[in-house]
Each structure stands twice: as C-alpha cells, then as structure tokens.
Nucleic acid binder design. Structure first.
Length: 312
RNA sequence: GGCGACAUAGCCAAGUGGUAAGGCACGAGUCUGCAAAACUCUGAUGCGGCGGUUCAAAUCCGCCUGUCGCCU
C-alpha cells in the first residue's frame, strides 16, 4: 500500500461550529485550512456565508475563501482541481491540510478522488436543453435520454429531476459519451488521500435550529441588510445567486414584504439547508461524529476531536 | 346584552348530502461540472362539542363553546 497523504476533514451542518474547531485543531497540528464551501469562495459575501474574519482565523492560513467575484460561476470540478493543488502545496511545506466545509458534494468528490471529464462545458447546449424543458416539459428529454443512455434514463426516471436529466443529455451531446460511462471512469483511480473525518452534529436537532435562528439575528445586527443590498445590486453568477441570505431579503428591500416575514423565511431556509447537509453527511460511515450538545465546554469537544485524530 | 359571520392535519385552505383536494412547514431520503441547488417519499376512520333529521352529514336543523365583526 502506497503512502497516502494525510488530511483532516471537518464537516457538518451550518452553524455547528466547524470554523472554531478547525482553527484550534490547525493551530495545534500546524495545519492550513482549505474551505470546502460553495459560497464562502465569493468576495463580498461575508456576513451571509458566515465567513471567518481575521480574528477568528487566528493566523491560520485559509484557502479558497473569498477569492472569486460573485459574477463568476464555480463548480465541483473546479473545486477538486483547486483543492488538489493546494493539498500538494501544503503537504510539500510540511503542513497538515484541513478540509473544512459544509458542501458535502465538494468534500466527497475531493476525498474520493472523483475524476471529472475534461470536457469544455458548452453553454449553448445546456441552455438549449433548459429551454426545451421549459417549453415541452421533462418527458421528451427523458425519452431522448432513453435512446442514447438507457441506464441513466432508467435511473433518473424514478425521481425525474430535471437538472440531472438535462445534465445527462448535455454530457452526451458535448462529449459523445454517456454519463453512465463517465460515472464508472470517475472512480477508477484510488484516492491518494487518507482522511480522518470529523463530523459535528447535535443529538437534539432543536439545539442546532436555535443556534441557526440566533445566528441569523446576529448577522442582521452585523449589517446583513447592507451586504444584501450591495450583493443584489451587482451581477451574480448562477452559483452565487443561490446563496441563502440575499434572495430571502430581496422582497423586503424592494418593499414587497415585511422584514419579519423575510427574516422568518431566511431562518427557515437555513434550517432546511442544515437538515439537507445532515442527510448528506450521515451516509458516510467513515465520519467520526461529535455531538456538540453532549459536551460541557469547547475544550472537551476539542479534546475529543484531538483523540480521534491521534487514533486515526 | 342584541345581531351576524366563521370554526376542516402544526399553519394556509378546497369541499353545501354520498363516503376528506391542494399548498407550506415538519420528518425521512436521493445526490458525480450551477449542490446554500434540484428532486423523491411521508400525515385526518377525521372536519370545535353534544344531540337530531336521513339509507347516507364536514356538508341540513337545534343547543353549547370559541374567535371575529357590527349594534346598544
């Protein structure tokens, strides 16, 4: 067995305390943090994405954070490319790489060494497919997929998720290969990483939801509305436009809804996001879960995390 | 005190005699180039309470309770 590169991953739902824990761990173990967060990558989207400030980072280098203007799009494939380079670089400097973030797809794609096809993404093709979906519905697209790639058509016909069906067709049209073939190819290389995975969760879901609600209030008092006005007034990419925190406040800013209603919506959307994150991470049996509400203090939680790392 | 309206799942809400639509939330799940996204599954032997009419009532009648409005 080859020598694998040791990395630590810290995952969990939003507001579970990933930032605080990972900074302390990185300080102790001479690490650097690679953020695996699809929204913290953007410049100027600081409050809504709970991006740590200099004080919170405590001098620990953070990568892939706040480096992209919101009008630029980003994706898993770009993330895995960027993160691989960073891991190599950090390791070369004899530091320990930490993968920290709540975007499960990014974390898993990186750690499982998923290889994406080196296709040039063809916007025209996907735009055309999306327009066809708008006009004709999903049926014709599903039938077309059945002709070229029966396997994935079969698989996708259960949930009939337009995004995935469109992507499957787009992939075939731009590469001439089926997404089913690509799926198999993407996992052929063994991962070069040996990850110790730490997951933050709560045994009482309500406690997590309380924290989320309070954090939203806190964001508002720190100027979330101003940030929202700013962000919404400039062009957004399809990626950045999905961030939770601005679109929910937009109706208030434009005078179409009350602030209370919008804030309620924002809290609810954040809670639902956290729930989806938990669903995603729960299926990874390699994660060592720490239930934040079962510890009396941060120090106890921290010690438990250190133990997990030492054992691994 | 009088008159009137309303009372259906956690919330909103269809349904005026024939055996409880739908939406949202909650919960569970899916997940390979926009993933803080998109999608799938899931709830009332029950329609404020008690009686009555009827083969049959959430739907008609009476009384009670509650909410809201108007009047004195």
């Amino acid at each position: 067995m080859k020598n694998k590169i040791k990395v630590i991953s810290v995952v969990g739902p939003t507001a579970s305390g990933k930032t605080g824990l990972s900074v302390e761990l990185a300080k102790l173990l001479d690490g650097e943090i690679i953020s695996a967060d699809s929204m913290q990558i953007y410049k100027g989207m600081d409050i809504a994405t709970a991006k740590p400030d200099d004080a919170e980072m405590q001098g620990v280098p953070h990568h892939l954070m706040g480096f992209l203007p919101p009008e630029q799009t980003y994706s898993v494939a770009m993330f895995t490319d960027d993160a691989r380079c960073l891991i190599a670089d950090i390791t070369k400097r004899n530091k320990l790489p930490f993968i920290v973030g709540g975007t499960g797809l990014y974390v898993d794609a990186l750690l499982n060494n998923i290889r994406f096809h080196d296709e040039e993404r063809n916007e025209e093709v996907s735009t055309e497919l999306r327009e066809r979906f708008q006009k004709e519905g999903i049926e014709p697209l599903l039938e077309e997929l059945l002709q070229v790639d029966p396997d994935s058509a079969q698989r996708l016909s259960k949930e009939r998720n337009p995004k995935r069906i469109i992507r499957a067709l787009e992939f075939y049209k731009t590469t001439g290969k089926t997404i089913t073939e690509q799926l198999a190819l993407s996992r052929t290389e063994e991962s070069p990483y040996k990850a110790i995975k730490i997951g933050l969760s709560f045994s009482d879901r309500e406690k997590l939801y309380d924290r989320i609600n309070k954090r939203v209030d806190d964001m508002l008092s720190r100027g979330l509305l101003e940030e929202a006005r700013q962000v919404l007034s400039s062009p957004l990419s399809q990626t950045s436009a999905m961030a939770i925190g601005y679109k929910e406040l937009a109706p208030y800013i434009s005078g179409e809804a009350s602030l209370d209603d919008c804030v309620e919506k924002l809290k609810r959307e954040t809670r639902r996001y956290a729930k989806r994150q938990l669903t995603w991470f729960r299926r990874d049996k390699e994660i060592n879960w720490l239930y934040v509400d079962e510890y009396n203090s941060f120090d106890e939680l921290f010690d438990a995390a250190v133990q997990i790392i030492n054992k691994g």
